[in-house]
Amino acid sequence: MTNVDVDLNLLVALDVLLAEGSVTGAARRLGLSASAMSRTLTRLRAATGDPLLVRAGRGLVPTPRAAELRERVHELARDVQAVLRPQITHMDVASLELAFTVRVSEAFLEFLSGPVVAAVTRAAPRICLRFVPKPDKDARPLREGLIDLEIGLLGTSAPEIRTQFLFHDKLVGVARIGHPLLERAAVTAERYAACDHVLASKDGERIEPVDAALEKLGLKRAIRVVVPGYPDAMRIARQSDLVALVPHSCLGNSLTGDLAVTSGLATFEVPVPTPEFKISAMWHPRMDADPAHRWLRDTVMAVCRAAYPIR
């Protein structure tokens, strides 16, 4: 039998290459140059006796052998990293040198990431937080270890995902200071529906609970602008006569009344019933007992609970 020296770095590289399907993407994740990643792929091809990734148009696609190996390689790479990671018994938070990838909505990134970063860096100045966008509720990045923590609405189809309630949120109306809608004390459903509206929607979908409630009254909003995120809707409402609906959390925790002023905007209660929704933290169960991950979860929860106390 021939002894073969195995470079475990190749296993990690193969895992990332198969996940990314791109030499450039894999190089970025591993902090390597594209040429170094290309040389690693050449070594992997020689070691496995398979091309692994082949050209298809401008991209790369996995060979049948690579597709067959993907899940097994990912599990092995994860196990190797877990074995070689130092076991934390008495955790000194201030000395932690870890990187966490957190998937959040654009609204959370704009309005709550600052307090979270301040709390984390104050206690653990060597921690690196990497925020990535949340285009959908797919649980695959949590399952595959591509992200460590997700914050937002529940909706994943993966029953094993752990969750922790953070705070209740609800929709509120916003309009520029001095908007005609706000000249009278009462914002009625009729006056609200008569306004022109800007809608925040990633996919352009226009149906919302408020539209169903207005329809029961024989009313309909006139959507004039559709934007991908709530910060964009607030920006347009601030500079026009359009009104917007945004989560209460988008206003920070500076509100002092029903008609509070936030950066040139005034808020008002939506004049039809709209349901509250829960914002939660989500993670894969393999991270449940990890002390550093548990500390991060507790820190995020403390920040959110301070900003939005449970009613």
Rank of each mutant, 00 (worst) to 15 (best):
H90P: 02
V104D: 11
S33W: 12
H74D: 13
S33R: 03
D92Q: 05
S35F: 07
V83G: 13
L53F: 08
L44F: 05
E71P: 00
S38M: 09
M91K: 12
V83L: 14
V93M: 08
V54C: 03
A99D: 13
D92M: 02
P86V: 05
R103S: 00
M37R: 03
V54W: 05
L30Y: 06
A34E: 15
R103H: 04
L30N: 04
R55W: 11
S33V: 06
T89M: 05
V61S: 08
V102T: 05
A82Y: 03
T101H: 04
E68R: 02
A82K: 05
A46I: 15
G31T: 05
A77W: 02
R85N: 11
S95F: 03
A36T: 14
G49R: 13
R70E: 13
L53T: 01
L60F: 07
V102L: 07
A67Q: 14
I88V: 14
A99K: 13
R72G: 13
R85G: 12
G49A: 06
R85T: 15
A47L: 07
D79N: 14
A99E: 15
E71T: 05
V104W: 12
V93L: 11
L84C: 10
T48R: 03
T101L: 14
P62C: 00
E71R: 08
L30K: 02
T40K: 09
P62M: 00
G31K: 01
A66C: 06
E71A: 11
V83R: 09
R43W: 04
G31S: 09
G49S: 06
L60I: 06
R78G: 15
S38N: 11
G57H: 01
V102Y: 13
R103A: 07
L41S: 01
V102F: 03
P64W: 00
T42Y: 09
F100N: 00
A77D: 04
M91H: 10
L69T: 02
P64V: 00
P64C: 02
S105Y: 09
R43L: 05
H74N: 12
F100A: 00
M91F: 06
V73A: 12
L52K: 04
